[in-house]
């Protein structure tokens, strides 16, 4: 059902430009990976705190506030570098199980991060029990890890 769209994307100008270049795909990919490190730090800093490890003397809300611009900034950077990578090999992605896993996990991770996780990390410490915080931290780490693993695995197929 979606295949014709994927075919159209792949044969579009951006996809073609990337495929015709030796350097473009690796370069965009390397920047995608750099942003991955930043988003990893921004997500894990707060998730670790929710789990009661790492910077546990700082309030969750303070760490979440500090991490927020890096999380959003690197997420925007990841998406804007990931989209051209996808465009250059859309049909391969269509048939890649890892791609669909990654995209589903990404959608869930974004929704979860900006709804449940945001509420829990912006509230003063007493409002949610530590157990809720721990659950949110675990879910966040699992979702974002699936995005990363799925992404790496697209390359192996």
């Amino acid at each position: 059902m979606l295949l014709p769209y994927f075919q159209a994307i792949e044969s579009g100008p951006i996809g073609e430009a990337i495929r015709n270049s030796t350097w473009l795909f690796p370069f965009v990919e390397a920047f995608h990976l750099l942003a991955l490190a930043v988003i990893g730090g921004a997500v894990l800093l707060v998730d670790f705190r929710l789990l009661g490890i790492g910077l546990k003397r700082q309030p969750v809300a303070e760490l979440a506030r500090d991490a927020q611009p890096w999380l959003i900034g690197s997420l925007i950077f990841m998406i804007s570098s990931g989209v051209p990578l996808f465009m250059s090999e859309a049909i391969k992605c269509y048939y890649s199980f890892a791609f669909w896993i990654k995209m589903s996990a990404l959608a869930l991770a974004i929704i979860f991060t900006f709804t449940v996780r945001r509420r829990v990390t912006s509230a003063e410490d007493a409002r949610f029990s530590p157990a809720v915080g721990k659950a949110v931290g675990v879910i966040s780490i699992l979702l974002w890890s699936t995005v990363g693993w799925g992404g790496r695995w697209i390359g192996f197929s």
Partner: peptide
């Protein structure tokens, strides 16, 4: 290797940014 990159480089970047006075300024 890539997954630990998120933890290692991610946290190293946070320390570097703190040393630069850019983020986690109250920590």
């Amino acid at each position: 290797h890539v997954w630990t990159l998120c933890i290692f480089v991610g946290f190293a970047v946070l320390l570097d940014l703190r040393l630069l006075g850019i983020t986690l300024k109250r920590v």
